[in-house]
C-alpha cells in the first residue's frame, strides 16, 4: 500500500486548508462481506472545503464506503484517513453524517436532536445552526411535526453541529419529492457556501451529482471501484440547465456504461 506516489486523484489546489493533510484520503480500500466484495481498490482524496459527489448504481458499495468512513465498519483493508488520522483510530470522530432518512430521535426536540453529538451545553451554537438550516422558531418542535424536508435539514444541522472535518451525506434527498429535492439541494449549497464544510455526497442521481459537485467520482459495481473522476468546471452559482453540465452528465452516464 504505497501512499503518496501514484494516486488516481490528486487534490485540487486547496485554498483555505487548515492543515497539510487532505480532509479525506482513501487509498486501496477494499471491503468484503464474506465472499462478496463490496469495494475494491478505491482511491479518493477530498480537499478541505471541497464538495465531492460519488455516483454509482445501486449495490456499488456507495453506502459501504460511507459506513467505513463513519467508523461503522471497522474491518476493511487499505487506508482511510480523515485529516491524517485513521478512521479506526479516532479519525471517524471528525465525521458528520446525514443518512438517507433523517433518523431523528422522536422524543427529542429539534434543538436536542441537533445537539446530540455535542458534549456540553452549547445553546448558542445549536440555536444558530437551527436557524442556519432555516428552522428558526422550530427549536422546541418534535420531529413528528416536521415535514420530510425539514426533518432532513435537522439531520443536516446535526451533521454540522460539532464542525466535523468532513460531512458525509448518503443519498439525503432520494426520499423527497422532486420539487422538495430541488429546494433541499439548493439549500445544501447555500449552507455549504456559508459554513464551508468539506462535503462528500453519495447519490445515484446523475443530475444531482453533476449539479452539486466540484468533482464527481463515478463508482462501478461489483465490486465497487472508481471508474472515473470528472471535474465539474462550471462556475457557481450554477443553473441546473447550464450548458457546462451537459458534458459532465454525459461522461458520468458514459462511465456508468448506460
Amino acid at each position: 500500500m504505497s501512499s503518496t506516489g501514484d494516486r488516481d486523484l490528486e487534490p485540487r489546489g486547496g485554498d483555505g486548508a487548515d492543515s497539510d493533510q487532505p480532509a479525506l484520503e482513501v487509498s486501496a480500500l477494499r471491503k468484503a462481506y464474506g465472499d462478496t466484495v463490496a469495494l475494491s481498490d478505491v482511491d479518493l482524496t477530498v480537499d478541505h472545503g471541497e464538495f465531492v459527489t460519488v455516483v454509482g448504481p445501486s449495490g456499488c458499495g456507495k453506502s459501504t464506503l460511507l459506513r467505513v468512513l463513519t467508523g461503522l465498519e471497522e474491518r476493511f483493508e487499505g487506508r482511510a484517513e480523515i485529516d491524517g488520522s485513521d478512521v479506526r483510530e479516532g479519525g471517524s470522530d471528525d465525521v458528520g453524517m446525514v443518512f438517507q432518512e433523517p433518523r431523528l430521535l422522536p422524543w427529542a426536540t429539534v434543538r436536542e436532536n441537533v445537539a446530540v453529538g455535542l458534549d456540553g451545553p452549547d445553546d448558542g451554537r445549536v440555536d444558530d445552526l437551527v436557524s442556519q438550516v432555516g428552522l428558526e422558531g422550530f427549536g422546541d418542535t418534535r420531529p413528528d411535526e416536521l415535514s420530510g424536508g425539514m426533518a432532513q435539514r435537522v439531520s443536516l444541522a446535526r451533521g454540522l453541529a460539532y464542525e466535523p472535518e468532513l460531512l458525509l451525506l448518503d443519498e439525503p434527498f432520494s426520499a423527497l419529492d422532486a420539487l422538495t429535492k430541488y429546494e433541499q439541494q439548493d439549500f445544501l449549497l447555500e449552507v455549504w457556501n456559508r459554513l464551508e464544510p468539506t462535503v462528500l455526497l453519495v447519490t445515484h442521481d446523475v443530475e444531482e451529482a453533476a449539479y452539486l459537485g466540484d468533482r464527481v467520482v463515478v463508482l462501478g459495481d461489483q465490486p465497487g471501484t472508481v471508474e472515473r473522476v470528472i471535474d465539474v468546471a462550471v462556475d457557481r452559482p450554477r443553473e441546473r440547465t447550464a450548458d457546462g453540465l451537459v458534458p459532465v452528465r454525459e461522461s458520468i452516464t458514459d462511465a456508468l456504461g448506460v
Binding site: 467508523g71 461503522l72 471517524s92 453524517m97 443518512f99 446535526r158 460539532y162
Partner: peptide
C-alpha cells in the same frame, strides 16, 4: 438499529 447507528456515528 438506525438510531443506535446515529449514536455510534456521533460518538455519544
Amino acid at each position: 438499529r438506525d438510531l443506535l447507528e446515529v449514536a455510534e456515528v456521533y460518538d455519544i
